[in-house]
Nucleic acid binder design. Structure first.
Length: 97
DNA sequence: CGGGTGACTTCCC
DNA sequence: GGGGAAGCCACCC
């Protein structure tokens, strides 16, 4: 299942972002958004974890990591409105089932 | 197997 | 939009 999540996250193109819930759904783990976060932490550094945000484009990460995630996203061209990502422009929609 | 935990989500005030 | 509460799922002890 770590693999499933990894695959889903890897599908997110640069400059786009997705929510934990969306990733979970794409990985076939709908309702297990927390597990996505769990997988992201475990594989930290091996996948574009910074492209995964909370519902509404909010960065749920705390501390330095949160700030870093924001910087990385902006570096990829993702725009922020206040403390959230403009989901209306950068939300990546996984292949509809 | 029971209990606690968390980078979640959604509903309600 | 912020704060609180409940539901959810996998992991660890």
């Amino acid at each position: 299942m770590f693999t499933a999540i990894h695959k889903a996250v890897a599908k997110i193109p640069k400059g786009k972002v997705a929510t934990y819930g969306a990733v979970a759904r794409a990985a076939g783990l709908e309702g297990a958004a927390r597990q996505v976060a769990w997988a992201l932490r475990g594989a930290n550094g091996r996948l574009p974890w910074h492209r995964v945000l909370g519902a509404g484009g909010k960065i749920l990460l705390t501390g330095e990591s949160g700030m870093e995630q924001r910087i990385r996203l902006e570096a990829e061209g993702v725009e922020f409105r206040g403390g959230r990502v403009r989901m209306d422009r950068h939300e990546f929609k996984f292949r509809a089932r």
